[in-house]
């Protein structure tokens, strides 16, 4: 006989699977709530822009600053743009965006849907013959899948800009020379991998936020729990996805 905790764990996995399956069943079948998708894209994208800008820029700047001393020892500071290109395009840009969005967007979706669940607003939709899954979940997940790759790309650009500011100050490198050097080591496979990663991250953040919020219980305590679990679970899955996608990309590269 399985213990209660183990039962709960496997029931959770089954429920998550059903939730994801439900998304694919409903998101691509009319009626489509385009207006709500656009509204959610605005909520996720535009409202995260300032945070992404600041974080992306600082990461580019600080990472360049920190990487300079070891390269200086070998007289290899001219490699800095290439190093930053690899670091920001391949890893930092998508990952930082995903982590920021997991915190800001994931918790927001978890709390919003959680409070709608405990105050019976989701039930109110259902009894008004409105499909709450389609209106609330499908739109938010789709918006996250569309918006987070765009934010990632934006974060990459801002991060490289931060890096350029530091390199230009220290080495007086021109804008064109910096970007030529940065992208010299980046292939299209790297860009595709980054975009693919961001699509997976967007799906994970949207899905986990919606799942936790949609299934919230126990009143206001449940809302806090949903928001918290949305962030923790999404971040955990993002790191796992990062490892898997990098591994798969490397197999493709060397095959």
């Amino acid at each position: 006989m399985l213990s209660k905790a183990l039962d709960t764990y496997f029931i959770g996995i089954e429920n998550s699977y059903q939730f994801v399956k439900q998304y694919f069943k409903q998101a691509f079948v009319p009626p489509f709530h385009f207006q709500e998708i656009i509204h959610q894209c605005y909520e996720i994208g535009i409202k995260s822009l300032s945070l992404i800008s600041l974080t992306g820029f600082i990461i580019g700047l600080v990472f360049t600053k920190q990487s300079r001393p070891p390269l200086e020892d070998f007289g290899a500071t001219s490699w800095l743009p290439s190093l930053m290109g690899i670091a920001i395009v391949k890893a930092l840009g998508p990952l930082v965006t995903a982590l920021i969005c997991a915190g800001k967007v994931g918790s927001g979706i978890g709390a919003e849907l959680g409070s709608m669940r405990v105050t019976e607003q989701i039930d109110a939709m259902e009894v008004s013959a409105i499909n709450p899954f389609k209106y609330l979940v499908a739109t938010r997940v789709t918006a996250a899948v569309i918006t987070i790759p765009i934010l990632s790309f934006y974060c990459i650009v801002v991060g490289l800009l931060g890096s350029y500011v530091n390199i230009h100050k220290e080495e007086a490198t021109s804008f064109i020379a910096f970007f030529k050097s940065s992208f010299s080591t980046i292939s299209f496979l790297d860009l595709y991998t980054s975009i693919t990663k961001s699509i997976f991250y967007g799906f994970t953040i949207g899905m986990i936020g919606c799942y936790k919020g949609f299934n919230a219980s126990q009143g206001t305590r449940g809302v806090g729990k949903a928001a918290n679990q949305a962030v923790v679970t999404a971040m955990f899955l993002i790191f796992i996805e990062e490892v898997i996608i990098v591994q798969v990309a490397n197999w493709i590269r060397y095959y």
């Binding site: 409070s115 709608m116 105050t119 019976e120 607003q121 039930d123 109110a124 259902e126 009894v127 008004s128 013959a129 499909n131």
Partner: peptide, 18 residues
């Protein structure tokens, strides 16, 4: 859903969309 349109449900806490 067709039936639900014909049945109005007023919730205990009103369940208005905040």
């Amino acid at each position: 859903n067709a039936l639900r349109i014909q049945v109005g449900f007023s919730f205990q806490n009103s369940a208005l969309y905040d």
